[in-house]
Design a protein around this nucleic acid. Sequence first.
DNA 1: AAATAAGGGTTCAAATAATGAACCAACATC
DNA 2: GATGTTGGTTCATTATTTGAACCCTTATTT
Lengths: 256, 256
Amino acid sequence: MGTVGKAISLLELFTVDEPELGLSDLARRSGFDKATTRRLLVALTGHGFVEQDAATRHYRLGAGLSRLARIREARFPFLQTAVPLVRDLAASTAETVHLSEFGVDALVTVHVEHPAWANRVNIDIGQLLPLHSTASGIAYLAFARDETVKACLTGSLKAFTTHTLIDPAAISTSIAETRDRGYSICDQGFEEGVISVAAAIRAADGFALGTIAVAAPNARTTPAAIAERGLAVMAAAREISMRLNGENLQTLRRQA
Amino acid sequence: MGTVGKAISLLELFTVDEPELGLSDLARRSGFDKATTRRLLVALTGHGFVEQDAATRHYRLGAGLSRLARIREARFPFLQTAVPLVRDLAASTAETVHLSEFGVDALVTVHVEHPAWANRVNIDIGQLLPLHSTASGIAYLAFARDETVKACLTGSLKAFTTHTLIDPAAISTSIAETRDRGYSICDQGFEEGVISVAAAIRAADGFALGTIAVAAPNARTTPAAIAERGLAVMAAAREISMRLNGENLQTLRRQA
DNA sequence: AAATAAGGGTTCAAATAATGAACCAACATC
DNA sequence: GATGTTGGTTCATTATTTGAACCCTTATTT
């Protein structure tokens, strides 16, 4: 791994649950030498990617990341466009609705709306969603580039629950069904007791760039509810795609 | 400069105005060799910090940045905390109120509320505010670390208008006055016809981490209005600081 | 109160990764 | 078909990164 990759993997050690880490801790978790870790942190700090708490000497992610993220968002207003529709969908379904964007080889949760229920599905921003075992992942794959699908199916497929599909052929079938239906259904493939439906949000070239999903406890989920949520999530995804692409759905080449 | 710094300075070439750049362009602007530039871009792409457009082969900032930025905001809820007070201040002053956070060597605008007036001051999110020539910058410097102030005053000081203070001694005086008064006043130092007042938002260690400012056309600005807005912006900054630091103003060591 | 462990930070010879001039292929322009 | 531009690649040379051992300070233990 190059030095740049090492620096970035240091950044990736920070999570919502552990947003501040000490030098030794970072060195231990990354596997890098303490001196190396420190040098990388100093470099990152110099550009605002990392900040050091003056009192505890612990490190945390810096404001420079927010700035670049905002520049990206200005060109690619995925969040601004999608969040209002995520809210609407959360209000109408009264279940957890989450929005994700494709990252390196998984989907990244970028926004979540939780319902008022005590018994609800909780998802954190930043949570990574594997492609093969989540409703969002399957919805994404249904409109992803062939290379992406191939890379996913030929990689190692982890079973998160006893319900997780790990047979490439079965997953391919699920993807094909999703493409026909317009939304995906994932019955406890990622977490026991959670049933999700999702639909792909697509760029002007017709390929998926993210997903919107509704996740609910299976206690509150009937086949009729699945179909209802599926149609709603599909409509929301379609609306977001249209708004992103200048109201012009004709430009979506690979339509289902 | 280390390799990590080079990689980050590549990222910093992307702006709101030019969010997508080609390889040769990036190499030219960064001053790095084309091979070096490419290798850095590949490393960054591998972690989702940049993406390459499949059609144009141009590069843009990636979703990995958004993910990390969100993790930061989850721990350090600057925006969540401050936005309600920005709204309140915008409502009570009926002028443009903007919130900024310190980046590497300037303030970054992270939130703006505009009034209903047709004649108003417009500010974009992401806009960089120089430290020496804006109300926000002076307010920040009044409670910044000595190194930061020194670095600012010894650097080159650009005059944006005929009113911009570019004499280090004059700026120092303005900083000292701001520290005593509790808020800064900038009369057309950044843009003709705009008068702003600002106050520093401070971390638990007492040092500034950002600012809140009211910007108004000078046509609507009297000395009395300046004083009124100054007191309001100071109160808002104080409230945000307190909420960020757990309601405990005692921890603000460097009080005015 | 001395000993021990753990954390943050630093040093410098040795090892390794980054560099860049020259190169290819593709496309556009003249 | 000659010329310029862009994206991308190669490999001997060069410069940066590496990490064991080090210091200092702050708990914790004996």
